[in-house]
Amino acid sequence: MTDSSVKAIAKVMDSVGDSAYVVVALIVLMALYAMLTQKNLLKVSIAISVMCSSVNMFLVLLGYRAGGNIPIHFLKGDESALMVLPTPQCLTLTAIVIGLATTALMLSLIVMLRKHYGTLDIDEIRRLRG
């Protein structure tokens, strides 16, 4: 990235400020709402994926420092330059992998549910009661 574009991004992020967290909170709430109201299993699984992504966004945001560079120590050059925090990025990578695994498993369960019950409607898949 060129120096000018880094500065441009930093300027935008400065003016945005903490409102980025509001966006994350909105997405989390949207996902929760969809999970509670949707009847279609596929839509529920989409809501879960959206929630995973929003949490990942939250983690990346936590580590962001306006104008920061990539967090690789020996590439950074001069010691005074700002870099974004590395730990949240590692957390995000791990969380993405875990999210992928659960989404895949969830979709395969949905396929099997569809085979057994012939429907994706959450209200009709109710053999376990009481």
């Binding site: 929760l32 999970m35 299993l41 529920v44 879960i48 929630m51 659960t102 498993l105 969830m106 369960l109 949905i110 099997m112 549910l113 057994h116 898949i125 053999r127 376990l128």
Partner: peptide, 13 residues
Amino acid sequence: IEASFKYMLVSQI
């Protein structure tokens, strides 16, 4: 399958 799916929803949230 149904039990596993229920468990998964709760666990993931």
